[in-house]
Computed example of a mutant assay.
Amino acid sequence: MRGTRRLALAGCGIAAALLVAAPVASADPQGPVTLSPQEVQQMCTAWVPKLRKQAQNLTDRINGGPEVAGSVANLKARANDARTKGHAAQADRLQKRADKRQGRIGELANAAKQLDAFTAAHCPVPK
């Protein structure tokens, strides 16, 4: 019984500490983030191409045909199939997923624009 109380008190203490520290850790920084030239170079050579490729792959998957798993067309086809089998709740869930996924195209296009702006502003043009 004594060990259980100690464990409970320790757990409560940890939870209280996390509640106090969480707002401090999540506070916005006071100024802009600055990167060293080495960090900018690493972003230009490694991260930007990787992020561009991921955004393109996601866009291709979302816009893919009914045979592409995860595409909007695939989700709509699955919803229609479920509806014809009498599974209305499943069909509605799949349709909502398809609609939400279609909305991601704008977010991916915005991310690509931000990557292009970063590249134009900070990455040297190869000769």
Rank of each mutant, 00 (worst) to 15 (best):
K127E: 15
D92M: 13
E107F: 09
A109G: 14
N110M: 15
P32V: 03
P66G: 12
Q102C: 05
A89H: 13
R2C: 03
V125R: 07
R101L: 15
V125T: 03
Q41E: 13
E107K: 13
G86T: 02
L18C: 04
Q54L: 03
I105W: 06
A98Y: 00
V33M: 11
E107Q: 14
D81R: 05
G70S: 04
A79S: 05
A82N: 06
G11Y: 00
V33W: 11
P37G: 00
D28Y: 15
K76S: 05
A79I: 11
K76T: 12
N80T: 11
L94K: 07
G65H: 10
R97I: 08
D99R: 00
Q41G: 14
Q95E: 11
Q95V: 01
L94I: 04
T45L: 13
K113R: 10
V33R: 15
G3C: 05
Q114G: 06
G3V: 07
C12S: 06
W47V: 15
M43P: 00
R101A: 10
R101P: 00
K53L: 12
V40T: 07
V125C: 00
A17I: 03
Q95R: 06
D116C: 13
A98E: 04
A55N: 14
K127N: 13
G31E: 12
S36V: 02
A121G: 01
K113A: 14
N57A: 13
T45V: 03
V20H: 06
L115K: 01
K85M: 15
D99T: 02
G103V: 04
C44E: 07
L9S: 04
P126A: 05
Q102D: 15
A98L: 05
L94M: 12
D92G: 12
N80S: 12
Q102S: 13
L75H: 10
